[in-house]
Simulated scan of single mutants.
Amino acid sequence: MGTGSAFYSPGMVGSAGAASRSSAMADQALDEEIDHVTTTREELEPALHGRT
């Protein structure tokens, strides 16, 4: 197993788990923002008559 999110060091107990959790939460937040932008654009297109 190489280094990365699975890295474990006895002197740093718990540090790898927090980083991967934060990364997963950031990914989820980004996905939600992208969905919001897409939805907003779809809602605005009829008002703008398809202009981009």
Score class of each variant (00 low, 15 high):
M1I: 03
M1S: 05
G2R: 04
G2E: 06
G2F: 03
T3V: 09
T3E: 03
T3G: 03
G4H: 03
G4R: 00
G4Y: 01
S5E: 05
S5T: 06
A6R: 06
F7D: 01
Y8I: 08
S9P: 08
S9F: 05
P10T: 05
P10N: 04
P10S: 03
M12K: 06
M12R: 01
M12P: 01
G14I: 00
G14R: 09
S15L: 09
A16R: 02
G17M: 00
G17E: 02
A19V: 06
A19K: 10
A19T: 04
S20G: 02
R21G: 12
S22M: 00
S22Y: 00
S22V: 02
S23M: 08
S23H: 05
A24K: 09
M25I: 09
M25N: 14
M25S: 15
A26V: 04
A26L: 01
Q28F: 10
Q28A: 12
A29M: 11
A29S: 12
A29T: 08
A29W: 05
L30I: 10
L30Q: 13
D31C: 13
D31Q: 11
D31S: 14
E32N: 12
E32K: 10
E32H: 09
E33W: 08
E33A: 15
E33R: 15
E33C: 14
I34Q: 13
I34R: 12
I34P: 03
D35C: 15
H36R: 13
V37Q: 15
V37H: 14
V37A: 14
V37D: 14
T38A: 15
T39M: 13
T40E: 14
T40M: 15
R41C: 09
R41K: 14
R41W: 07
E42Y: 03
L44Y: 05
E45T: 13
P46N: 07
A47R: 12
L48T: 11
L48D: 04
L48Y: 06
L48F: 09
H49P: 10
G50D: 03
G50M: 04
R51S: 06
T52K: 04
T52A: 11
T52G: 11
